[in-house]
Write a protein that binds this DNA or RNA. Structure first.
Length: 767
DNA sequence: GTGTGATATCTTTTT
DNA sequence: GATATCACAC
């Protein structure tokens, strides 16, 4: 057993053997980071540490599951299954379930997902009569989420001058008020959102010393994966938990920090040594994954970032292929080139489909790739995008489950009170909500005791309400006693969902019906499986061993699952399509990185600040270093974005790879004409379509022609060359709006793309 | 109260 | 181009 250490290199072995005290492992891409973590856990177990005293935190369920499997292979099942292992969110959700009563929450609190959060914020904005143009739910949700990630409670938010001033300057002085109400509403609904799982855990540890001590004694050894992606809340929770023993080992790579947008704080890794002055630090710099070409190419990219811990990643692997660059006319052609290339490699090298991954910046890019792969009959699987648990029909059924478990869950209640249609329409719902707000009670209280609140509903609606309440109550009565699958099936049928979906014979309707069946299958699997196999369930020791797997147990994990956790049905040999974010931690022999265009990758939102641009560069670094044998990058010169054809310029990241490592396309010179000088003036198919559309628009709005010295508004059409007094010559990409707000996107050779109001721009047409 | 068509916004990335 | 919300007709 102890010879497991011999499977490690010296650095890895040192990192594994330093079992006590604070340890930081800076692990370059492909350097065996996960290996160190798993061996460390195995080593702890071999040294006689009780598995119940080990806490191993990861960022995804998948990573956690894989780590568990590896540990099982090293030390056997009996020990490994009792290690506390999971994502931050799932582990602390579990802690909260047993301690939440101290914060006034029931243990069966609901977990609101992003969707629920946004809906609730929207209703609040409406309730307090704010303009939803100024207060967009997405922006507010981000603001609140950001605050929570930094442990700023609603009270703290509303008493911070700095924050309030910031919001005032942004023209949104009522965000604090929305936050306050949002918090109150969540509490009333016995619900926590994702960020609450961390914030409330922190509050719990902060306010209850006995709880803190309990978990400090429980978690003697703490291991954290992907430490570079922790936010402030996670950092503070760790700090508290580790304060007693300081047996904390964090593993990460600052160069792979790509979650800054959701509050990840790269300083956490940079400051570890400040917090723990006697921390041991290990750097893993040997890459075992990729060829020399890939490692070196990635190094030449990442070195352009200013914020980083210096390290030198190297490899003993073979030199390997150059990075191939594909250039396409359009996004569709890009898909075809990628699919053809995959097909070619498969033929020549005889490799399986699952040796390939296509990585992109945004989910929307998957479509053209999918279509091309389908044409060549290459099977693929998409990760992310509209995830299974985000589909409407799934959320509807889950809402029934949620409401049956937690009557106060208002987002669930609102979702299903009239789905399937049962005659409780908008007006009735409005009056229920008004009554609930007046009494400051959950909506359920009101519909459960309609007599005590003057609802003013007619008797027909009342009896419909009673029927609904009775139905939910009958489900509730069985939540803890009935087998999860049996109850789920019962709810699906008696709620009327099955009937409703079954009547819809369109392809979409059939697929919705099948999705419900799939969810029921998943629940069946949950019911049949012995408990310890389920992530998050392993420490739940049932004394009698005869317990029935119940629906509320199933629901505890479901909110924290993502698409990546849904097992592929045929589990087969498929090409993987996913965003680069989703690809972190994975590796593939052949990697295609598509859409390397300015404004897409790097994203247009990142161009404003160095920090954001550096995050995009790290993202590119992550993408490159997923590959074992070969990287192919591609870009398109034209791409449909939000339904319009747009001209694209190759990404700066292409040029940032040292030329020694790149095989450029055979036609030299092509690439150096980025703004489509070879663009046939309006001849290409999609472009023509676009031209026509805009033309219609311009004739419809020919009224306002206040252009003085320049051309008239309807002379400015996509495709023509224009000249601007200050910006020089450029090409019109698209035109939109009418009258005074009519504006054009123009690509200028010297200054890039600009949006111009035609009323002021005074463009001259270049003949 | 319900269903249908029009329209606005969306595209960054996720637990 | 796709989806979610909204106005309007039944």
């Amino acid at each position: 057993m102890s010879d497991i250490l011999e499977q490690l290199n010296n650095k890895q072995r040192e990192a594994v053997e330093a079992l006590t005290g604070p340890v930081m492992v800076i692990a370059g891409a492909g350097s065996g980071k996960t290996r160190v973590l798993t061996y460390r856990v195995a080593h702890l177990l071999n040294q006689g540490v009780d598995p119940f005293n080990i806490l191993a935190l990861t960022f995804t369920n998948k990573a956690s599951r894989e780590m568990k499997e590896r540990i099982i292979r090293l030390v056997g099942n009996a020990d490994a299954k009792n290690v506390w292992m999971g994502t931050f969110h799932s582990v602390f959700a579990r802690v909260l379930r047993s301690e939440a009563y101290r914060l006034g929450f029931p243990s069966h609190f609901s977990i609101y997902d992003t969707d629920d959060t946004k809906r609730l914020i929207k209703t609040i904005i409406k309730d307090i009569d704010l303009d939803d143009k100024i207060y967009s739910s997405g922006y507010i949700a981000n603001r609140i989420s950001g605050a929570k990630a930094n442990l700023i409670t609603a009270e703290a938010y509303n008493s911070s001058d700095e924050i309030l001033t910031h919001d005032k300057l942004a023209g949104k002085p009522f965000i604090g008020e929305i936050y306050k109400q949002y918090k109150a509403r969540c509490f009333r609904a016995s619900a926590m959102d994702f960020d609450d799982l961390l914030l409330n855990t922190f509050i719990l540890l902060e306010s209850f010393p006995d709880v803190l001590l309990k978990y400090q004694m429980k978690f003697n050894f703490i291991l954290v994966d992907e430490y570079q992606d922790t936010n402030h809340a996670q950092y503070m929770i760790l700090k508290k938990l580790a304060a007693r023993d300081e047996n904390i080992c964090v593993v990460g790579d600052d160069a792979q920090s790509i979650y800054g947008f959701r509050g990840a704080n790269i300083q956490n890794i940079l400051n570890f040594k400040r917090d723990y002055p006697d921390a041991l630090e290990f750097k893993l710099e040997q890459n075992y994954r990729s060829t020399q070409t890939i490692v070196n190419a990635a190094n030449t990219v990442i070195i352009k970032n200013k914020d980083q811990i210096y390290k030198e990643i190297w490899t003993e692997n073979e030199e390997g292929n150059l990075i191939e660059l594909l250039k396409a006319q359009s996004d569709n052609e890009e898909g075809t080139l990628v699919a053809n290339s995959i097909f070619g490699i498969k033929m020549n090298e005889h490799v399986r489909n699952d040796a390939f991954a296509v990585l992109y910046r945004t989910n929307a890019q998957s479509r053209s790739i999918e279509e091309a792969l389908r044409r060549l009959n290459i099977p693929y699987r998409i990760y992310g995008g509209l995830s299974f648990y985000n589909r409407k029909e799934i959320k509807d059924l889950l809402a029934y489950f949620r409401l049956s478990i937690n009557h106060n869950d208002e987002e669930a209640l609102k979702r299903i009170i009239n789905y399937p249609a049962r005659g409780i329409g908008k007006t009735s719902q409005e009056s229920i909500i008004v009554a609930a707000d007046q009494a400051d009670k959950p909506m359920w209280e009101v519909i459960d005791n309609p007599g005590q609140h003057n609802l003013g509903l007619n008797s027909g609606t009342r009896s419909k309400l009673t029927a609904f309440v009775t139905m939910i109550k009958s489900f509730s009565a069985q939540v803890r006693t009935k087998n999860a699958f049996e109850l789920a099936k019962l709810i699906a049928h008696s709620s009327g969902i099955m009937k409703d979906l079954n009547e819809d014979k369109t392809p979409e309707g059939i697929s919705r019906y099948e999705n419900i069946e799939e969810l029921l299958n998943a629940i069946k699997e949950f019911s049949d499986k012995p408990k310890e196999v389920l992530p998050g369930e392993e420490t739940k020791m049932q004394a009698d061993g005869t317990s029935i797997p119940t629906l509320d147990e199933f629901m505890q994990d479901v909110a924290l699952l993502t698409d990546a956790d849904v097992q592929d049905k045929d589990g087969g040999d498929k090409v993987s399509l996913m965003t680069i974010h989703a690809a972190k931690g994975l590796e593939f022999p052949y990697v295609f990185i598509v859409g390397l265009e300015e404004n897409l990758f790097p994203s247009i939102q990142s161009l404003g600040s160095r920090a954001d641009l550096e995050e995009e560069r790290r993202l590119f670094y992550v993408a490159l270093t997923r590959a074992q044998k070969k990287v192919t990058i591609s870009y398109a010169q034209n791409r449909y974005r939000w339904g319009n054809l747009t001209l694209c310029e190759p990404s700066r990241f292409i040029d940032e790879i040292d030329r020694r490592f790149v095989a450029f396309p055979s036609r030299p010179g092509d690439k150096k004409l980025p703004f489509g000088l070879q663009f046939p003036s309006g001849q290409s198919q999609p472009f023509k379509k676009n031209l026509k559309k805009v033309n219609n628009l311009s004739t419809a709005s020919s009224g306002d022609n206040s252009l003085n010295a320049g051309a008239t508004a309807d002379q400015i059409i996509p495709g023509i060359e224009v000249e601007h007094a200050r910006f020089g010559k450029g090409k019109v990409i698209s035109v939109e709006g009418s009258g005074q707000s009519r504006k054009a996107s123009v690509f200028f050779r010297n200054v890039g793309q600009k949006q111009l109001l035609l009323q002021y721009a005074r463009l001259k047409i270049v003949e």
